[in-house]
């Protein structure tokens, strides 16, 4: 499992990095989305791999780590996902605004000279 997850994070992150180095605004927003998946997964995985051990302390007795997954990394990622949506929206509005203002979808607001 660990290897698959690590490779998955690597692939998402690499694709994202490739995209944010591209010149077109839509490529950047796609790249940022892919990178945010990768980073969210990465932070989430800091709590390690747990299967069928959701952090719901329903069983009687004093709960401890090992019986349940790490709730901390999950809580951190949860808000990150929602804020990721908000920043994507912000980027999107700037993207379409810049397209209208500059007449190009190049990230610098002007086409490169030849």
């Amino acid at each position: 499992m660990e290897a698959v997850i690590a490779i998955a994070i690597g692939v998402l992150f690499g694709s994202g990095v490739w995209l944010i180095l591209r010149p077109r605004t839509f490529q950047i927003i796609t790249g940022l989305m892919l990178m945010s998946y990768a980073v969210n997964l990465f932070i989430f995985m800091m709590g390690r791999v747990w299967i069928d051990k959701a952090p719901l302390t329903l069983k009687p007795g004093i709960p401890s780590l090992g019986e349940y997954a790490d709730p901390l990394s999950q809580a951190l990622v949860l808000t990150a996902i929602v804020i990721g949506f908000a920043t994507t929206a912000l980027y999107l509005v700037i993207m379409i605004g810049a397209r209208g203002l500059t007449g190009t979808d190049h990230v610098d607001g002007k086409e490169p000279e030849a």
């Binding site: 690597g10 800091m46 390690r48």
Partner: peptide
């Protein structure tokens, strides 16, 4: 490629 590889290695090393 290097970023992806680095991230994968780092993730694996932690996991």
């Amino acid at each position: 490629l290097a970023c992806g590889l680095g991230m994968a290695l780092l993730s694996y090393a932690v996991l």
